[in-house]
Design a protein around this nucleic acid. Structure first.
Lengths: 258, 258
DNA sequence: CCTGCACACTAACGCAGATTAGCGGCGCGA
DNA sequence: TCGCGCCGCTAATCTGCGTTAGTGTGCAGG
């Protein structure tokens, strides 16, 4: 058993800092969490499967993962993305069985933390419990927004909305450089997240490029005109509940080193 | 200020009882919550609007309500139903601003409870906090399932799935009689919840009737063959996390008296 | 009484988006 | 070095579903 590395939880610090001010003691308490060695998973490798009863909380350090659900006949829906700084399933505290699966979309690195590790942290620093619950509720709000997207927004609007959302979330953890960021997932993943066929997703992507809304190549996404993209998406950032401005607005390394 | 009525809180008891055994002291603690007089709202009347900062927790006693989100151009998506026994937005504990609206779908009756009222209840009976969090997480799971439905299931499968879900949830609070239950909402509401046009929803409903899956008229829904309906919907009840069987399996009055 | 409105339901039409098929480039392992 | 599979991309076809426009019924209000 070891503890978290400073670079490893930097995204988490930044994220929680968007919700409320973090004091030095809060950071110290989080740094004190004991964990196993850092885990590494390949893309397309599942981290957890529906029906399992995982006994650890996972903190994503680098790479992208997702929550997904699938049907017996193979249809698959990605219901959320995990970005660095996100906990995968804090809810194992309460629920016994996973009602969805968790998969890696790229190579990922994460820490595994025993739930009881949080106990003392929360007792010492009740504000941290608040921050963690806050994050859970934001995740829930994001799901509501996705429901609105898939149910009502056109494919173009939907995709635009997702890109703006990811831009906000990646900025929050210091992984955007200006209006550009690493975008390591495939068009197939995008299609699965948006309830579109691969072909149609590609068409929509072409249209966005034609409209000069974005540039996407070599796993890099660049937003050309954020305001216009937000207008197209009818984007309202309230559901992210980032009550405090991005601290530092740092020029941000692409990959936090281990 | 008064306290909850016995009949008013019965659905909540039944619901929490599906998650874990409720002791007499738990019931007593909940009954002790102080509340304002019971509120009454007409259908189509909003209970709360996006952007507001509500300072009360609402406990639905009778009637159906919904969470919804809308876009500036009027498109609307219902992202969840509230049935008797449900709390509308426990999350005001943490989040300051509502990122969605809450609307009445029928005439509804509910209690308004001050958040601080929960404080002592939770301190006395920590299991109740657990039950309330559990319910929040189930709501979150339901949203994920809806995402899967809207993203991947065909309209027929989607509708079938929703009906089975509502059957389970209504049974849990004692509002189903065998395979029948009050179904007080309009086809328009169903369309808005399923991301379908009204016309197409109607077509799909006809198809379900033709296939003898359900009967629906006079605001009463009857499931003709639950197993077949579940098969069509590819329904897996795990996401509801009802760990304990329905208690009593009571023949259940339709409308709990005030 | 008629008027107006909400609601369930239907028909005709057209398009958005699924499906199937196939292209070329690239990285990887044999 | 040559496959082989993944990935981005495109074209042709067909259909599910949205749109528009209606009908009929029941009910509340003037």
């Amino acid at each position: 058993m070891t503890t978290l590395t400073a670079a490893g939880i930097e995204p988490l610090f930044r994220l929680l800092g968007r919700y409320m001010p973090l004091e030095e003691e809060d950071r110290a308490a989080l740094m004190g969490l004991e964990t196993g060695p850092i885990c590494i998973r390949d893309p397309r490798h599942d981290i957890a499967r529906e029906g399992e009863n995982p006994s650890v909380v996972r903190l994503l350090v680098s790479g992208w993962a997702c929550r997904y659900k699938d049907l017996p006949d193979g249809r698959r829906q990605i219901v959320g993305f995990f970005l660095p700084g996100d906990f995968c399933d804090l809810n194992i505290y309460i629920l016994k069985e996973l009602d969805h699966s968790i998969g890696a979309l790229t190579a990922v690195r994460y820490f595994e933390i025993q739930p009881q590790q949080f106990q003392s942290v929360i007792e010492d620093r009740p504000q941290l419990l608040r921050a963690l619950l806050w994050h859970e509720m934001v995740c829930s709000g994001i799901q509501r927004e996705w429901l609105l997207s898939i149910g009502q927004r056109s494919p173009l609007e939907r995709l635009a909305h997702l890109f703006v959302e990811l831009y906000y979330r990646l900025s929050a953890v210091g992984l955007a450089t200006g209006l550009s960021f690493d975008f390591p997932i495939t068009q197939n993943h995008l299609a699965e997240a948006n309830g579109l066929s691969l072909v149609h997703l590609n068409r929509t992507l072409q249209e966005m490029r034609r409209e000069r809304l974005i540039e996407l190549s070599d796993k890099q996404l660049r937003i050309n005109d954020l305001d216009r993209l937000k207008r197209v998406a009818m984007f309202n950032s309230n559901y992210l509940h980032f009550d405090r401005p991005t601290v530092g607005a740092a020029p941000a390394r692409r990959n936090p080193s281990p």
